[in-house]
Design a binder for these strands. Structure first.
Lengths: 342, 342
DNA sequence: CTGCTTACTGTAATCGATTGCATAGCTCGC
DNA sequence: GCGAGCTATGCAATCGATTACAGTAAGCAG
């Protein structure tokens, strides 16, 4: 209907006040008298005024948006985290930008550009596998305080971060399998070099030691968080002379691939081998057998990350709240684990 | 390292030219002589200049970003489409904003605001279930040409759209089941009112008729694209006196839930009943049994949508390319379908 | 009644890049 | 040798909101 979008000037003219007053009415109503406030409100109504973000962003030196960086958009693990982030951001008038690392590289675009360009006020990175030069560029920018890692992180850097209790979750898993009666427990790991892989692997070994269990080197099967890694791991398991009777997988996707491949080879879970995962993705519940897993509250993780980022954007020097948050995980017992056959 | 980000002015000063020349060098090099061009390039280098998007956006009246609207961020079906969109956008210097419809409503934010606010130059909507007033607001804006539907669409509106061959895919599926030898074929539908649900349902019925097959009303089981809908449908199937021996599900998620629940009840797929889905999501291949499905090229769908949107942003009056694109689908045969038992 | 505070409101500079118009120097044709 | 036609560059207005600073009127104490 409105052919041309109207500006603050238009509203000011209609209301018979200055643009300053209109601006104040909109962003700082306390400074404006009751009567002008209603007059301006009417003018805003009649003109159909909508604020121009570009102008505001320029003047306030804020982009009013945050960038979320994923290793891979096509991974369902991240979607709920995004939902959590988005929920918090949009409540504060912020927009959520998304970029995936592989793509950023391909197009020659650099992450740091989002900050330098004033395209984003901060970023939440869900990928601990950034290359060294990218990390260095982020560390050396004056805006480093507005960079935050979620889920994953990078050892030896000072970035703020949110993560789940990977170690405790892992030890809980091992202890649970032990409590079921299993004594020979294996582990399919994440990709080598990945921080989550290390955290979970190390905690796994520690707990096995603490429980005084046997651990053959071949029972630790290298993987990479994917369905396919699970399939490959199943092949390894099938070829073993002395097989672990329970397997803790570093991710649900691994566990599902592992079970699928075993099933295709006539091995029954949990009768022949107990399998559990980590993450508790949506599919875990629906798989056959339903997957026992360590639950991560991804929604909360996303919200926490967004909240922390906003605090750091608002006061980079002295942000309210934590520098690092660690969220609780919980054991979810389903049908893929059982007592060993007598 | 650089304490303060430098501006065009700084570069101009260092290079000994005017800001106009620097701007032209950057955005329209042909207008500038070889020698100044290199001089400016050096100055850009030494000052570490990064363009300020907010300023550019204000002046050019472009946000240089596009909004993608999803019904639900947590649905893995969309991730690959996003990847496709993002790939095309970032190649052209555009950023990708994400919002989910449920959330936009909750926060009182309106989709149209993204356009009116100059936060986005256009939007790709993956949700055909927008409420009437939202649709009306989008139709009545002068920017309606920059709104595009992908995957889903809304009947009776003039928005551009990209979609897959839902009808042909469905008819292919039915014919395939028929060719296997099945004569009693059922269908689990999407949510009532959804355009995809209608397209697939109608095509299903048409093809059944064309093949002269029996179709009992109860063989059409209402669902809603989700895993749970599949589970519920399985319960219905189990309760039937005269069961269809093959079931075409309106989505892979339905099909997986359906199979899972059947399996839990001792029914074997495909021996006891053939099941197939639509979409060919990642999990389809890894499920046990691997799911026969109709493949949608979601990456291409995303890229096509982005391409069409860019064309419409560049020239809203007379966009190059199609107003509606329909992408081919293909049958992927796996293990969840088989000839009926003799 | 005077001077000071308080509560609003207006003026105008500002954020940083883009671009229409003006200008200067050069080439070229006749 | 003169004007037309380029090419390369600069000047300055502009996009639309925010905000420091200034000004005005009313309220109030003394």
């Amino acid at each position: 209907m409105v052919a041309k979008t109207s500006t603050l000037q238009d509203v000011a003219r209609v209301a018979g006040v200055s643009t300053a007053t209109v601006s104040r009415t909109l962003s700082n109503p306390d400074l404006v008298s009751e009567s002008t406030r209603t007059r301006v409100a009417k003018a805003v109504q009649s003109t159909g005024y909508r604020i121009n973000r570009a102008a505001r962003n320029l003047r306030t030196r804020r982009a009013h948006s945050a960038l979320v960086v994923l290793p891979d958009l096509a991974n369902p693990f991240f979607s709920e985290i995004l939902e959590g982030i988005s929920r918090h951001l949009s409540g504060r008038g912020y927009s959520m930008l998304i970029a995936s690392t592989n793509q950023v590289h391909e197009s020659g675009e650099r992450l740091i550009d989002y900050l330098d360009n004033a395209r984003a006020d901060g970023m939440i990175i869900l990928d601990g596998g950034l290359s060294d030069d990218v990390v260095a560029s982020l560390e050396n920018t004056p805006q480093a305080g507005r960079v935050l890692f979620a889920c994953e992180w990078i050892e030896g850097t000072g970035f703020a971060s949110v993560r789940s209790e990977n170690r405790r979750g892992t030890r809980t898993a091992v202890r649970y399998l032990h409590d079921l009666g299993h004594r020979k427990i294996g582990h399919v790991t994440g990709p080598s070099g990945n921080v989550l892989m290390h955290a979970r692997h190390d905690a796994f070994v520690e707990e096995i030691r603490a429980l005084n269990l046997e651990l053959k080197p071949e029972w630790i099967i290298p993987g990479d968080f994917s369905l396919n890694a699970g399939c490959r791991a199943a092949t390894s398991w099938l070829e073993m002379d002395d097989r672990p009777e329970a397997v803790f997988c570093a991710s649900d996707q691994i566990a599902l691939g592992f079970i699928a491949e075993l099933t295709r080879n006539g091995v029954t879970v949990p009768d022949d081998v107990s399998v559990m995962g980590f993450d508790d993705i949506d599919f875990a519940e629906q798989f056959v057998p339903a997957l026992t897993s360590i639950h991560q509250d991804r929604l909360l993780l996303g919200e926490t990350a967004a909240k922390m980022l906003m605090a750091r954007i608002d006061s980079p020097e002295d942000p309210a709240g934590d520098h690092a948050a660690v969220l609780p995980v919980s054991l979810v017992v389903r049908d893929s684990t059982a007592r060993p056959k007598p």
